[in-house]
Structures are given as structure tokens and as C-alpha cells.
Amino acid sequence: MPKELQSPMDSANPAQDVQGIWGMTIDQDLCTGCQACVAACSMENNVPFVGEVDAGYGRSMQWIRIERFWQGSYPNIKATPYQPVMCQNCHNAPCEPVCPVFASVHSASEDLNLQVYNRCVGTRYCANNCPYQARVFNWRDYMDPRQRPELVTLSNHWNPDVTVRRRGIMEKCTFCIQRIRHAEDTAASENRDIRDGEVVPACAQACPASAITFGRINDPATKVSQAADTSRGSHLLEELGTIPHVTYLAGGA
């Protein structure tokens, strides 16, 4: 991957030297499209199951989805590799400048995109401006059993480490920031730095093919930065200059 496409360190921001920049690689040659990451993500992050009717309106909620395309015309169809797509946590994020209430903000210390649920008023500008369609909107109070009795079966698994979102709030993949915080707290109380591979997001943990690697991409010693720094790496919609923190690996060595 060319150097200019890698996430730049902000020289005016000393915190990034200390905290590091979190990033991910997804090996499309290993991905089998089994959707285990999708299920694990929904369970970990309290992503609600919207039901048949709302899914019909295109209101399905997933923070990560498996994309697949077909090349050529029938019968000479060639399937492209499976492509799990989640929020790419762009360095130049198109979602951020359009938010009127600063609910979609950039983390100065870790170069992550943040969604501040208590600020969000649900204008959905960010989702309309996201080139990866990674943001999903709560069209109803899906967690309220009084409003959606048919969906109550999945309401008993809420993760206490993640906010349960209300109606009218935009949400997206956070790189499992609750797990990052947990690892940071553990490292801080043991007076050491976070080890490579200590933070494992739910999707990476669930992936049976180990196609997803997570870690600090500004540290050349980590597995994730070594995997990303090869000719196999590419970014989604590189030409937009969003500088995503997720690198897709495909093709030869």
C-alpha cells in the first residue's frame, strides 16, 4: 500500500503517539462469508433486530455486513471475494463535517470516528454522506418490549458496556471501543502498555477463518500494520481520499 494512503499521524496532536491509532485488516482470501461477524457484532453492541416489516423498508440494522458482487453477465459470472464492510473509521471522515450538532466527531487521541448518542438528534446527514453506507438509523424504539412485543425474544442479551440506543439515533461500528477501553484500563492498572492482540473486536473474535486482525496501525511491530503494509492491501473507495483505517487484503503475496 502506498505510504500516502496510510493514516497520517497528526503532528500537532501528541496524544496519538501515546494512545496509538487503531486499525483493522480484513483478508478477503480467508473470508468465507459465513456471517459470524455480523451475528457477533449485533450481540456485542446491542444492535437490535428490526423485524420483517422494517427490514422490508430497508431499515435493517447491522454494523457490519458481508458484501458480494458478481462480475460479467450470465452465464459467465464470476463471483468476487466476500467483503465485510463496517465503518472504516476514516481519517478524513465525510460524516463528520455534516453533523449539525457535533454528534459525529473525531477522536483526537485515537483518530477514531465517534458517534455521541446523547448529542445525536437524528438528522441522518452523516449516513447520507457516508460513502460506505456504514451507518444505520434507529427508526423505532426496538428495545422497548411494549412497542415491539414480537421482537422481545432478543431483548434479554443487552451488553451493559454499550449504550442501548433509542429511537431517532444514528449508530455505527465503533471498533468495539468498549473492549479498547477495557484493555486500556487493564493495562493502566497493571502499569504497562497495551499488548498487540490484546484488543479483539467481536467480529475478529467470532471469525472462524481469522480473516480480521485488529491493532495499532501506527506501530510497525504489530501484526495488523505488518499485514496492511504489503502489496495485498487496499482501501475501499481509495479515490475519495477518506483514508480509512480498515485495510482489505486480497490477491497474491
Binding site: N13, D17, V18, Q19, V105, A108, E110, T163, T174
Partner: peptide, 19 residues
């Protein structure tokens, strides 16, 4: 001082408490 400054950026970040 640099460490304090880094910690300050981190501790006033939204994602320190809101996620």
C-alpha cells in the same frame, strides 16, 4: 508536560465516557 498534554487530549475526548 508532554505526557500531561497527551492525557488531557485523551481525557477530554467524547469517547472516554460516551460509547
Amino acid at each position: 508536560a508532554a505526557k500531561l498534554e497527551a492525557l488531557r487530549v485523551k481525557l477530554t475526548d467524547c469517547s472516554t465516557c460516551h460509547y
